[in-house]
């Protein structure tokens, strides 16, 4: 079977700087892929490139059987390609409910939107209590829950999660990762997970790619990577 996403030899430039030096990766339907590596390795750029925020200078991106290279993010979300960006990017002056509605902005199927909203409230009951509060007043953990929920409101086939654990308390991180796994199991949503916390990411991911300096240095099944002493020491921080 063909993978849902195939990135082939993609290079991305910021001005003259080559941020991605030709990366290739695939994500099969229903998989969780972890994208690991140090700061500045190009993980976030990889996600931004896939979703169209920073179009690639070279290479090709195939998604759901079609070439999406150079397509714009506002069009790709209609195909179920959704990014939950690093730093959450909640609309601070919109209410929680409006933030969620923004996630479903491109959709017109009112009944389905309502049922997705129910699903999101089941995952994160806290959001229901905060419905009319403005997004900027939420705590960091609640904002992350809102960001993921907003992404889910777009009915993603492929959900790109950038650093969902960043700046959160360990107990909240556990909760978020539990939910990520739950979404993957119940909705069959394919995910690409970018994480600083490699150990944590490898507990939910099936496969992982390790990036260094704009390239994929290594890839393999999560278990293999976790158990390989050398890899652990070199890339995963012990």
């Amino acid at each position: 079977m063909k993978p849902l996403l195939a990135v082939n030899g993609v290079k991305t430039f910021y001005g003259n700087i080559e941020a991605l030096k030709g990366i290739s990766l695939t994500a099969g339907s229903g998989e969780i892929i972890a994208l690991l590596g140090a700061n500045g390795a190009g993980k976030t750029t990889a996600l931004k490139t896939i979703v169209g925020l920073t179009p690639p200078g070279e290479g090709q991106i195939i998604y759901a059987g079609g070439d999406i290279t150079g397509k714009r993010p506002e069009d790709l979300i209609r195909k179920g390609l959704v990014l939950v960006p690093e730093g959450r990017h909640i609309f601070p002056a919109l209410t929680v409910s409006e933030n969620l509605m923004m996630g479903a902005f491109h959709r017109a199927d009112k009944n389905e939107i309502a049922s997705d909203l129910e699903y999101v409230f089941k995952l994160f009951p806290k959001l229901k209590e905060r419905l009319n509060q403005s997004g900027g007043t939420l705590s960091g953990g609640e904002q992350q829950m809102l960001a993921i929920s907003r992404g889910l409101m777009g009915r993603p086939k492929l959900l790109l999660l950038d650093e969902p654990s960043l700046g959160l308390a360990p107990i909240i991180i556990g909760q978020i990762f539990e939910t990520i796994r739950e979404i993957n199991v119940s909705q069959k949503t394919t995910m690409i997970l970018v994480e600083q916390n490699a150990k944590l990411a490898l507990t939910v991911a099936g496969r992982a790619y390790i990036m260094t300096a704009g390239r994929v240095a290594m890839s393999g099944a999560a278990e293999e990577l976790q158990n390989d002493e050398n890899i652990r020491r070199a890339y995963l921080g012990g």
Partner: peptide, 17 residues
Amino acid sequence: LAMRAVAQNPDMARLSG
């Protein structure tokens, strides 16, 4: 809603379609 979203965070508004 779109106007307010663009005013607050244009990139995120694009990511929302």
